[in-house]
Amino acid sequence: MTRPIVLMFVALLLITAGLGYYAYHLKAKVAAEEQRLAQQSQVVVPPASGPTTLVALYIASDQEGGLRRSSVNVALPQERSERARAILRALIGAYLQPGSQHPIGAGSDVRDIFLMGSNTAVVDTNAAFADAHPSGVLAEELTIASMVTTLNANDPQINQVKILVDGKERDTLAGHADLRRFYRANGIGQLLKDTP
């Protein structure tokens, strides 16, 4: 074996080692970033400026298996769909608080709300909302019911809601609740633990 070939082998081995080290470093970096994102408890806060309005939130409780009404002050935009989005972000923020009676996945958020006609809201959630949502028939139904009831309580014209994940339709939220359908506000009365 001639010297140039030996040099080439050495060079290739060094490249291999370098590539391996780079890949290992990259993988560790990605894993750390994923862990950081998963642990990040994104608590949604309303816009700092502007007057606040008292809005009704229907908060789910896993132990009670139902929804209870509570009120919070939220700064609401003028535009109707933006207002609905701010209200739902306040609801999700409540679920992301430590000690929540109905914890949902860290990083959950509402990306957008589209109003179709006067009575239908299409809620576009982010991937974390579905991917990290606790799996279970009741847990998933409670989340959806609380979103539908909260929207209806603050904008009575909205009486049916469709939920998308990352702009797309999904079969289920986390393996159980059917996300292919429209949820009607008048079909949720059984879950209400107190009257408005």
Partner: peptide, 10 residues
Amino acid sequence: HAANSGKGVH
């Protein structure tokens, strides 16, 4: 079904 939250049977 079975769930890791809540209590009892639904």
